[in-house]
Design a protein around this nucleic acid. Sequence first.
DNA 1: TTGAAATCCAACCATATAGTTGTAGATGGT
DNA 2: ACCATCTACAACTATATGGTTGGATTTCAA
Lengths: 120, 120
Amino acid sequence: MPALTRPSTSTADLDAIFGALAHPTRRAILFRLRRGPASVGELTEPFHVSQQAISKHIAALHKAGLIIQRKHGRESRCILRTVALREAGRWIEFYRPLWDERFEKLAEYLASTKSRKLKG
Amino acid sequence: MPALTRPSTSTADLDAIFGALAHPTRRAILFRLRRGPASVGELTEPFHVSQQAISKHIAALHKAGLIIQRKHGRESRCILRTVALREAGRWIEFYRPLWDERFEKLAEYLASTKSRKLKG
DNA sequence: TTGAAATCCAACCATATAGTTGTAGATGGT
DNA sequence: ACCATCTACAACTATATGGTTGGATTTCAA
């Protein structure tokens, strides 16, 4: 088993996940879904855009694996899927060791020296 | 002090942060910077795109607050800045309570029932 | 001082994104 | 059977994104 050298979720997946999270409306939709499933209509209400625009956002969230959809009659209920969020969280967690304040200070110090021979 | 009802980083900031993380080249740059500062030239080497393209990626990372830059002579050294990553992590952590497997099962169950009177 | 190196800026191009309007298809209620 | 509702699809528009090339600027070195 090789040492972990980088976060392991596929890069295409992460493109879709982070891309989906990069829009405020989509984050707001996820925020709403935290409270439970909702239909497309219910998700549209709070926003000043068309239902079709919300459908596109939903498609982006779906593609990223951030939600699933279930048909109930003519409604399509959206359900938050946490797996993808967990993947994104895992990618970010990989950098946690660097969050130590002193580490960042050291990095800046190193950058300010002329020794650029750190390539190895 | 009001109860926390949503992640608190400004939405514009999160747009920029998640947007920056949504591209594999930019994630690879961050991954490289984890090992320490690097010049634009050094960051360009591993990729099959022009230096100018990398400069644009660097600009996106800078705008998102994910890196800082220091001039040293004609070089511009890029340094990972962990604050923005921490913000992104904080946003995602907000959803951690839902990561419980059973919770997700319950959500799917609720979605499969006809009771759509959960609006409150 | 002359030239090469590191970086950035500008213009351009192709494609993606986020929105619109119009409409079609399926479902539910009467 | 009919009509209204919910959602998705298609076509269009404007802007953003990711890349290119060419050239300007700054700095190091001889």
